[in-house]
């Protein structure tokens, strides 16, 4: 199987990863190697970081998702997956390219944001927020306008200056209503989980290969009762830091791995160099309305 590209890494995987671009770089050995094999149900010396994740003193992580399988993730980049017999490939990829990717980032001192991102004006513009805030939906709408997709769910940043984004892959996870609103059929799309009304939409126009600068961050918020919709630039440093901390993917893993100081400094660097906005929307507001305003805000 051809090696693939993920966040600048060469990935050799026993599990097919169609959402990743093919590796076209040098002939270095793989940075990440994904194998199938037996994985014990507990990690010797492991601490429970969250209900289904243990991490041991060397930084090795063990994630167990009951109906998908176990993922043993070593700092060396060796990843062993013991799938449940009934697990589907899309389900295995979902956790490999989500939770496991987040863990790998923290192991390597990178900053993963819980964000989908697209290319606007030669830079990455990231949409950051909790589940259901419309990250992937906004990315889809920009993709339909011809913008390349940099990441879905996990947007990986280098912590050095000036914090470039390492593109992950052009796949978006979308609920049925978001696809239908965008006039896209769900036929032929893989389901996120068996029986779930959420699908994997792989953006056919190619993704992005090399690192690109982060141009802007939009923290997606739900307009609370009586609040106005709109885009607002955060200016107080402490507000920006708090927003970035909330927006960091699996912050508790970073803490458990002793990366808190590096993460704080990465947050501070972004806060000092990249404009951070809140985008407040009513729960049912159509996403299309905001595209022009976002693009105009980015252009400044």
């Amino acid at each position: 199987m051809t090696d693939r590209l993920l966040c600048g890494w060469r990935v050799r995987s026993a599990v097919a990863l169609p959402e990743l671009l093919e590796w076209q770089g040098d002939d270095r050995p793989p940075d990440l190697t994904v194998r199938l094999g037996a994985v014990d149900d507990s990690l010797p010396g492991g601490r429970t970081i969250s209900p289904w994740l243990q991490i041991d003193g060397t930084g090795t992580g063990l994630l167990e998702v009951p109906m998908v399988g176990r993922f043993l993730v070593q700092r060396s980049g060796d990843i062993t997956i013991a799938p449940q017999p009934e697990a589907r490939e899309a389900e295995i990829r979902l956790f490999l390219l989500g939770s496991v990717l987040g863990l790998v980032c923290h192991q390597r001192g990178l900053l993963p944001l819980h964000a989908s991102s697209v290319v606007i004006e030669d830079g990455a513009v990231a949409f950051c927020g909790h589940s259901g805030m419309g990250k992937s939906t906004l990315a889809l709408r920009f993709a339909q306008r011809g913008h390349a997709v940099v990441s879905d769910d996990v947007c990986v940043l280098d912590t050095g200056s000036p914090a470039p984004v390492r593109p992950s892959f052009p796949r978006l996870k979308l609920w049925r209503d978001a696809l239908e609103d965008a006039a896209l059929p769900t036929e032929g799309l893989e389901r996120n989980r068996r029986g779930q009304d959420k699908f994997h939409f792989i953006e056919p126009q190619a993704g992005v290969r090399g690192p690109i600068p982060l141009r802007a961050l939009f923290m997606l918020r739900r307009a609370k009762h009586g609040e106005q919709e709109g885009i607002e630039r955060l200016s107080a440093p402490l507000d920006i830091l708090a927003a970035l901390e909330t927006g960091t993917f699996r912050m508790q893993i970073g803490r458990a791995l002793g990366a808190e100081k590096a993460l704080f400094q990465a947050h501070a660097l972004i806060a000092g160099t990249v404009p951070v906005y809140t985008l407040r929307r009513l729960p049912d507001a159509p996403p299309g309305r905001w595209l022009d305003a976002i693009a105009a805000t980015v252009r400044g």
Binding site: P237, I240, L241, E260, K261, F264, A268, L269, A271, G272
Partner: peptide
């Protein structure tokens, strides 16, 4: 605490 500068503000994080 950890310290970092953001613009004119020095920020401390007490972990």
């Amino acid at each position: 605490p950890f310290e970092a500068a953001i613009g004119d503000t020095q920020v401390l994080l007490d972990v």
